[in-house]
Design a protein around this nucleic acid. Structure first.
Length: 476
DNA sequence: ATCGGCTCGCGCAA
DNA sequence: TGCGCGAAGCCGAT
């Protein structure tokens, strides 16, 4: 049977041969935490069928994943519960072990015929894959399933903006936006395995982890997992896609897909999302185009950025022209200047900004349009652009379910001029694009957004606006 | 309400 | 070498 996966998605990471006495093909699941539309999983099944072996999926869960807290773990464990159930239905073994992902992979790799891993673009994800490739005693193959068009197919360099990436992406899109056929394993997994953590109760499971519990679950707003992601997205297509192009920049509404947390944990396939949306092309052409632009161009621009810019999480990644102009204006008087703790506690003079910060803190999400305003104001109201960058990323990664994502770093950079162009010079910003409260008032019903956030925060049991919050987390 | 100008660098045409 | 144009903007002139 031919391999149903484009060759460019597949990369052998070491020169070690398959183990002839291997007992199973191991899929070391890391970035793409789903059991369907997962090219790495399908590749593992295909390899296992050729070798007449069963498939084992192993996930390594570490307590000290960079910047992760109870909020992130709760959502992720809900997703892994879906993975476990779906794999069991397909006759595939699943085991979750506590420990560094690379160690868990190497440990189960000792009896494996070969190891298959999905792809991750962040520094630590690349390091884990390098470590496993170097130490494994069998073949390690990486299969790209986190983006539609593999990053190195799109471009061999760090792209300057969406406009330079867009044509390169679309040239290849059709070839990679293909349905992924699910193959049945010929040999079912039959050995009972015990995971280190029971997944049937995510909340209970999180309590047993030694993670930062001060940022709590937001499960009353977002439930993790492939099943919920698909249901949400099908509802989005049926009810909201029709207005997407027109309303996606209206934070007072909820006419957006909310897929970013699911994409961040690999619980949903970007290929599936694109193909689902494209089913509506004949009636919703403009809206589908607009959605797919966000899903493919903007998202894969972020992947391109972290893949090619080793300093993606520091101010050094901001383009030179932007650093220069911000430097010239570093000594400009700042009529409003807040420290990180005041930002975090939503204690600025601006009710729109405070609402955005409260949405982020109490729901784990923020409407896309407000993410821009929120970031631009941190730049404007911090003592220096460098401090602003650090504050922005810290808050982003602490509170967003979709924080610590390639998109987080690209979006943070955009606030400071990345992937953008110069605009008329003004105080503090220099020629970096600015945003003003008056723009929000002109373009959307921002007062309704503030009311919306008040309702959400009340539902979350948070304090009413203007009362600060319970704890100063920057004090820790 | 809508429109041009502001500014930098890429990519394509000449 | 020149020219058009770009993630979501802002301001001032009509």
């Amino acid at each position: 049977m031919p391999l149903p996966i484009a060759a460019e998605r597949i990369r052998v990471l070491n020169e070690t041969p398959n183990r002839a006495s291997g007992e199973y093909v191991l899929y070391w699941m890391q970035q793409s935490q789903r059991a369907e539309w997962n090219h790495a999983l399908e590749y593992a099944i295909h390899s296992a069928n050729e070798a007449r072996l069963p498939v084992l999926v192993a996930f390594g869960l570490m307590d000290d994943y960079p910047e992760a807290n109870a909020r992130h773990y709760h959502f992720m464990l809900e997703g892994l519960r879906d993975v476990e159930a779906a794999l069991e239905n397909r006759g595939i073994g699943f085991v979750l072990r506590k420990g560094a992902p690379a160690n868990v992979a190497l440990s189960f790799g000792r009896k494996a015929h070969s190891i298959v891993v999905d792809r991750g673009y962040l520094r630590h994800q690349r390091a884990w894959r390098e470590e496993v490739a170097a130490k494994a005693t069998c073949r390690v193959t990486q299969v790209e399933t986190d983006v539609a068009v593999p990053v190195d197919v799109v471009s061999g360099k760090c792209e300057i903006a969406a406009r330079t990436l867009r044509p390169k992406l679309w040239r290849n899109a059709e070839r990679f936006l293909q349905p992924l056929r699910a193959t049945s394993p010929h040999v079912s997994w039959s050995i009972p395995l015990r995971s280190d953590i029971a997944l049937d109760d995510a909340e209970k499971a999180v309590r047993t982890l030694k993670v930062d519990h001060s940022v709590g679950s937001v499960s009353q707003f977002f439930t993790g997992g492939t099943r919920t992601a698909k249901r949400l997205f099908e509802r989005f297509c049926a009810q909201r896609l029709h207005h997407y192009a027109e309303r996606r920049n209206h934070p007072e509404n909820d006419e957006i897909s909310h897929m970013s947390p699911y994409l961040h944990f690999g619980q949903i396939s970007p290929v599936w999302l694109a193909l689902e949306a494209e089913k509506f092309t004949s009636t919703e052409g403009i809206n589908v185009q607009s959605f797919v632009e966000e899903l493919l161009v903007r998202r894969e621009l972020a992947m391109n950025f972290v893949a090619h810019e080793s300093n993606y999480d520091t101010y050094a990644a901001v383009p030179a022209w932007a650093q220069q102009t911000l430097e010239i204006h570093a000594s400009d008087r700042r009529p409003h200047c807040y420290d990180p703790r005041q930002f975090e506690n939503a204690e600025t003079h601006d009710p729109y900004w405070n609402a955005a910060m409260r949405e982020m803190r109490f729901t784990g999400f923020m409407h896309n349009y407000m993410r821009m305003y929120w970031g631009k104001k941190i730049l404007e109201w911090s003592a220096s652009p460098q401090e602003a960058f650090a504050t922005l990323l810290t808050l982003n990664n602490r509170y967003f379910l979709d924080g610590r994502d390639p998109n987080s770093y690209a979006n943070a950079g955009w606030i400071f001029g990345l992937h953008d162009r110069p605009w008329p010079e003004r105080a503090i910003f220099g020629t970096v694009r600015s945003m003003m409260a008056s723009g929000l008032e002109r373009k959307c019903d921002i007062k309704e957004y503030v009311r919306k956030v008040d309702r959400l925060v009340e539902k979350a049991g948070g304090p009413p606006a203007g009362h600060g919050t319970e704890r100063d987390l920057f004090e820790r």
